[in-house]
Structures are given as structure tokens and as C-alpha cells.
Nucleic acid binder design. Structure first.
Lengths: 340, 340
DNA sequence: TCCTCTTTGCGAACCGGTTCGACAGTAGCG
DNA sequence: CGCTACTGTCGAACCGGTTCGCAAAGAGGA
């Protein structure tokens, strides 16, 4: 493999001159530059990443920590990962991926050994045990998901409170007066998935202020339990006319359940979900839903992270906590309740 | 950040001695070793990955190239990625992930700049344009997916021929005489997804030798088209008693379609799919299926790759092409056809 | 013609590890 | 008691880049 020394020799210049010719950090005569460039081409020279990292203290790599927790809907995570990865590449960074269960260890490994210039944490829990480690690391960090304590990192998340309100308001405006909300399994919440609470509490509050009934329940994360859950809820609240779904597995199971009950949306029941557009397309869920925008969140996190890495963000520019305003995509699964 | 020089100074020894004390590559007195170790602990020393890579010409990083192609079922890819990533970590390697559309570029970047010790290619097409580049690279490569030319790389894939035969045999043995096979969209095949052909051709051949009818068709990759496709097929072949599904989107759509037609499996129709166990669990597909074992394939690929990286595979040990024998997981969706 | 300023290139040092060869000091042995 | 062998440590070189300081050469002005 060719080194910059080889390039220099072939071009008949010193190593430093070759380096400057390539980086453009000093003026170099057109003649020399041309000779260096052809030498690079002839030799197929590519700088050694390790050597460059050592010399510049920059790796142009971003660490991505994805946690795959029991009973969370794994395919949803892929969209976040792709958003991060593709944006990083656009900005000239590669992705070092850690999926191991022990995120603390992975994080320490990456930051201490200086393999990365910055860190993106996905699926951040309310009291995430990776955060203390990230705060001590010399590299900047960006989170997708809202922890209790946001100091020292940039945070991006969907505005789940707004999402909860939006779902309730939408059905309330159509005339619904009794709703059911199906959330993720309860132990997802206990483990720190605060977003479930945030949406649910906001929905409950919105229902209260509007004087309508909302039954908030947890649903399972897998079939066939989740199908049974849905049947159980529809049995338990026969007068409910609207269904809110903050649970991918439940959304995926709903078409079958409705068929089994000979119900159609929105004629018999109005339905609003909360999941990504990609998810809706893949499973062709015909339900209006709140876009969870994983690619957008991943993109925002990386953008801000790179700004901070490259010091365009002033040294002590305050950290950012940014919420994406949810949008309701109308797929025609909601209507005024039947007047019976 | 502490360097090995700091460690050496605190321990009162030379840098080389500190290095040997940590690596154990030369005998070191117990006393010195202890001093070095406490210095490491006190300083929180972790070796700089770039420096080590430069000195040892080893990065302990594996490059993972995942392609997300239009109209392929993206969530399935996640399982492969996790299999690779988790196995790599167990063996002490980290994963550099590339998801960009231009895999050739990503591959070249990783190999030329020596960011990785080896490469795993996912979703390998029959004539994959990344392969020529991989063959020229100094790092070894392992593929998941079978290309036309396997020279210079280790190859792992499901035995799709066997899978096709297995599906047909299973239903034939139960007494079925007319089957429908739904494959991936036709342009997935054209783009090089040879596995679709391999399964389909083997199924056709198996049907021929057993003297039964098999209608092989392509299905869409998304809803709602794929739902319509399924309805169309069931309309077109009313005498078919068995359905073979090599198309995740079709499998996910099938429960709804069957409900709409007031059919149940296996009473009215026997169904066999081909997808991962995880996929079946997530969507709780109640259909017997051929396990596509993405985690196992990812694991095998990484294992072999690491063997080769670490030179346990003799310098010129011949390359491996290994097929995983598919297994049919019985979920009770097949039975003898109705005798009407 | 001489001096100054700018352009252009070079040499050396450095980043933080690893590893080879040399060399004291000690033990073993005759 | 002297020789050899071994143990434990050190210094120096190297991996492949980047960057700082310096100097030679050429341009421009007085």
C-alpha cells in the first residue's frame, strides 16, 4: 500500500510538500501540485485513517449506540439508524455501530480509545445509565429521546405531549366522546421509556379539559397477546368510538382484529396511530397517524453533533433540546362517530 | 487523556516496559507489573485506537456493508446486521457500518484507508458490483448471499433450493396437488436477488417430479398492492389448496386477505412461508415457515472472517461456500387438503 | 545594486502506541 | 572464581500522517 512518502518520492518532493499539496493548507506551485496529484493517481494512494487520526486527533467517525430492548419494536429502530448513518455520510463521517446490550461498556470503549469524534445515543431512557459516562467523555454527544437531565448533551425528540393532545383533539373535534388509548407494554415504561408516559399523560389531560372519556391501557408488544388485548379492550369499552394506538405491534395487529369483529374504520371505529411513515407503508396500515419521523430526528441529531465536533458551535454554546412537532397524516381512518 | 508515556512515568519505568507489562509479550517482574497496573487504574488509561492501529496494522474493526434496496423488505436486514454486530463484539471487534446507496464507494473508503481488518457484505447480488473491489482489497471478506463468482471470499447463504423443495415436499406429502408460490417482486430478481430464482426454480422442479401443479408468481413489496395480488391469485387459482410465500410483505398481508375471504388456515388453505423467526414473532404470523436464520448467517460470516483475519485459517486455506440447511417450523398452518 | 517581501519547498518534530536489539544484573554451573 | 545463560528493563526506531519554523529563490521597489 502506498504511503505519502511514496507519493513524495514519485513526485520528487518532500513528504511535507506532498501533504500540503493535498490538503491545500499552504500555497504550492501549480507544477508541483500536478506532479503530486498524478503520483497519487498512479500509486492509488489513500491516506491511512489511523495515522491521520493520530496526527490530527480527529477520526471522522461517529459512534452510534442503538439499544434493542426486550419488547420494544425493533424494526422501528432501523429507521433511526438509517437516518443517522445516511446523514453522517453526507457530512463526511462514518458510523461505528454498537448494538451490544451493555451500552455503557460500548460507550466507554469508543470514547476512551478515541475511536470516534462524537456519539449518538438512540432510544434514550428517562434515567439512562449511559448518560453519566457520555457527560464525562471528551467527545460531544447527541441524543434521540428525552432524558430527565439534559445537561451536557444535545437532545432531540418528538413532542410526545403534543402528539397525545393532537390525537385527542382530532377525534374530539370530530365529535367523539369516548376514546381508548393503547400504549406500549407497561414494563417498557418502567424501564424508562418516558415517551409513553408523556403521550399518555398529555392525552389524559387533553381529554379531561375537553370533558370527554379516555381509557388509557397498556398493550403487549407481540402477537398473539396484543391481538387478544385489543379484543379485550373493544369488549370492555363497547361505547368507545375512537381508538388511539401508541404501540406498533398493536397497530400491525389491528386490521386482523377489526376483521374478526366485522368492524371497519372509520365507519364503525375511528383510529389514529403513532408510528413512522415507513412503518405505515411497509405494513400498509390504513390508519391516520402521527408521524414519528425517525429519519428526521436522526438527521437533526447528527447535524448538530457535527456542528459541535467541528467547532462551528462556539466552544461553550449552550446545548440544545429540540422537539419535533408531530404531524397527523390523514389516511381516512377517522370520521364523525356513528349517530346511534 | 493519559498516554502510555504518562503510565510509564507514574510507574517509574520506560514506555516500552509499560507496553510489555500490559501486553504480556515479554516477562516482567511482578513488582513492575503491579506498579504499571495501578498507574493504569489511577490515570484511567486506555490505549489510543488510532496509534495502536498505526503500530500494529490492525484496527479490530470489521466493515459492514448493508444495502437497502428499493422494494426489498428493510426490516429483515436488521436481523442480519444484529447477527453480525453482536458476534463481532463477542470476538472483540467493532463494526463500521455503511448504509449508503453507493456500496462500491463505501467499500473502497474502508479498505483503502485501512479503517477495517475485514469486510462483511450483506444482501449480495448475483453479479454484485462490490465484489471486484473486495477481491482487490488486502482485507478478507465474507458474504451473506450467493454471487455467481465466489472466488476470493467466504460465502454464506441459506440453501434456497432446499427451501423450495422442502416447501413443496411438505405440502405434497400432506396430499396437496395444486400450489401457488408468491415470490418477491420481479425487479428484485432482475436486480440480482438470485435467491428468489433459486427457491422458485427448485420448487417448480420439485413439483414437476412429483407430478403436481405449481403456479409461480411474483408479488408486490408493499401494501396495498400486495393484498390485491393475493386476492388476484386466490381468484385465479380457485382449486389451489396450498400457498407458498417467499415475500415478507405478502406474508404480513395474508391474515387480512384471508379474513376478507372468510378463509382460515389450514382448514381452507395450507400456508408455508419463508422468513425469519423474529419476523414471525413480531407480526405473529401463524404460518408454518422456513426459518431464514439471518442471525445464524451473520454469525457464521463473522466467525469465518475473524478466523481469516487472525490468520488461524492458513494463509492460503481455500475459501468456503457454506449453505445453511433450512428448517421448517411447524406453526400448524398446514394440513391435508379438504376432500371436496 | 541592494534590500525587503513573498512565494515555495524542506527538515524535523510530533501524535501514541509497538517491537527489536542491547545490556545490566543475577543465577547456575563447572 | 570465571564463564555462560537467562531475566528484566531500557533506548531507539518505526508505523504514516500533519504542521511548525526556517531558508532559498524570485519579485518588486528605492
Amino acid at each position: 500500500m502506498a504511503t505519502i512518502g511514496d507519493v513524495a518520492r514519485v513526485a520528487g518532493v518532500s513528504r511535507s510538500t506532498a501533504s500540503y499539496a493535498l490538503s491545500g493548507k499552504r500555497t504550492i506551485s501549480a507544477d508541483v501540485r500536478r506532479r503530486v496529484e498524478t503520483a497519487v493517481r498512479d500509486l492509488g494512494y489513500t491516506p491511512n485513517a489511523g495515522a491521520r487520526a493520530l496526527a490530527t486527533a480527529q477520526t471522522r467517525v461517529i459512534g452510534l449506540l442503538a439499544q434493542f430492548l426486550e419488547d420494544e419494536f425493533a424494526p422501528a429502530m432501523l429507521q433511526y439508524m438509517l437516518g443517522v448513518s445516511n446523514t453522517a455520510r453526507e457530512l463526511g463521517y462514518d458510523i461505528l455501530l454498537a448494538t451490544e446490550a451493555d451500552g455503557r461498556n460500548a460507550l466507554r470503549r469508543m470514547t476512551d480509545s478515541r475511536m470516534v469524534d462524537g456519539i449518538v445515543l438512540l432510544n434514550v431512557a428517562e434515567h439512562d445509565d449511559r448518560l453519566p459516562i457520555l457527560r464525562e467523555a471528551p467527545q460531544p454527544g447527541a441524543l434521540v429521546g428525552l432524558p430527565a437531565d439534559c445537561t451536557g448533551v444535545d437532545v432531540f425528540d418528538l413532542d410526545f405531549e403534543d402528539a397525545g393532545r393532537l390525537m385527542v383533539d382530532h377525534l374530539h373535534r370530530l365529535g367523539h366522546r369516548e376514546l381508548v388509548l393503547v400504549s406500549q407494554p407497561e414494563h417498557v415504561v418502567e424501564r424508562g421509556g418516558a415517551y409513553v408516559w408523556r403521550l399518555q399523560n398529555a392525552a389524559i389531560e387533553a381529554a379531561r379539559t375537553r370533558g370527554i372519556t379516555l381509557h388509557a391501557e397498556f398493550g403487549s408488544a407481540h402477537q398473539p397477546e396484543v391481538g387478544r388485548d385489543l379484543h379485550g379492550l373493544l369488549d370492555a369499552y363497547p361505547r368507545a368510538t375512537g381508538l388511539l394506538i401508541n404501540n406498533e405491534a398493536a397497530a400491525a395487529a389491528l386490521p386482523t382484529v377489526l376483521h374478526e369483529r366485522r368492524l371497519t374504520a372509520p365507519a364503525d371505529l375511528s383510529v389514529v396511530g403513532r408510528y413512522s411513515d415507513e412503518f405505515a407503508r411497509t405494513f400498509s396500515l390504513p390508519y391516520s397517524s402521527i408521524e414519528s419521523a425517525p429519519d428526521r430526528l436522526g438527521r437533526m441529531a447528527v447535524r448538530e453533533l457535527v456542528r459541535r465536533i467541528e467547532g462551528q458551535a462556539g466552544a461553550d454554546e449552550p446545548h440544545v433540546v429540540r422537539f419535533v412537532t408531530p404531524e397527523l397524516v390523514d389516511r381516512g381512518s377517522t370520521a364523525a362517530p356513528r349517530g346511534d
